[in-house]
Design a protein around this nucleic acid. Structure first.
Length: 136
DNA sequence: CTTCTGACA
DNA sequence: TGTCAGTA
């Protein structure tokens, strides 16, 4: 029948997504190539983006504007997914506190650790802006 | 007419 | 990244 998640339903072509995200089609295709987003394809091989994809791209757009490079964005996106998983697991099992939710402090610590692991603080420095807000 | 991939600057 | 080519 209909899709598992309405937000994962393949709906819009790249032109619409481009307007919604204020990203050029070129950029969107490039980010897909870098696996930051994975839109489905129509029978004619046309990309079909879901609300979920659009949200991700808007998030990417925001980070790009802040001067974060792709390596850094991948880290942030990875965290965002962890948050989604956390909230899903949370609503599914309202049991004990096995799947505890992350506090803001824990979230920042996790992000800082991931960023450091990816070696983002090397000489190249993935960000030109303020990622400092993430590791208060 | 819109999108796609590959390629060049 | 923008843009152009040649398709589907």
């Amino acid at each position: 029948m209909d899709y598992k998640d309405r937000k994962a339903m393949p709906l819009f072509p790249i032109s619409i997504v481009s307007e919604l995200t204020e990203l050029s089609a070129r950029q969107i295709r490039y980010y897909e190539e870098k696996k930051l987003v994975t839109p489905l394809r129509s029978e004619g091989n046309r990309r079909l983006f879901s609300f979920y994809d659009v949200d991700r791209l808007i998030e990417i757009k925001r980070l790009i504007d802040e001067g974060v490079n792709l390596a850094g964005i991948k880290q942030v996106l990875k965290l965002r997914e962890n948050q989604v998983q956390e909230s899903q697991a949370k609503s599914q099992s309202e049991h004990k506190d096995y799947k505890k939710d992350l506090s803001e402090k824990e979230l920042h610590q996790l992000l800082r650790r991931e960023l450091l692991e990816s070696g983002y603080l090397n000489k190249t420095s993935i960000n030109q802006g303020d990622l400092s807000r993430f590791y208060h």
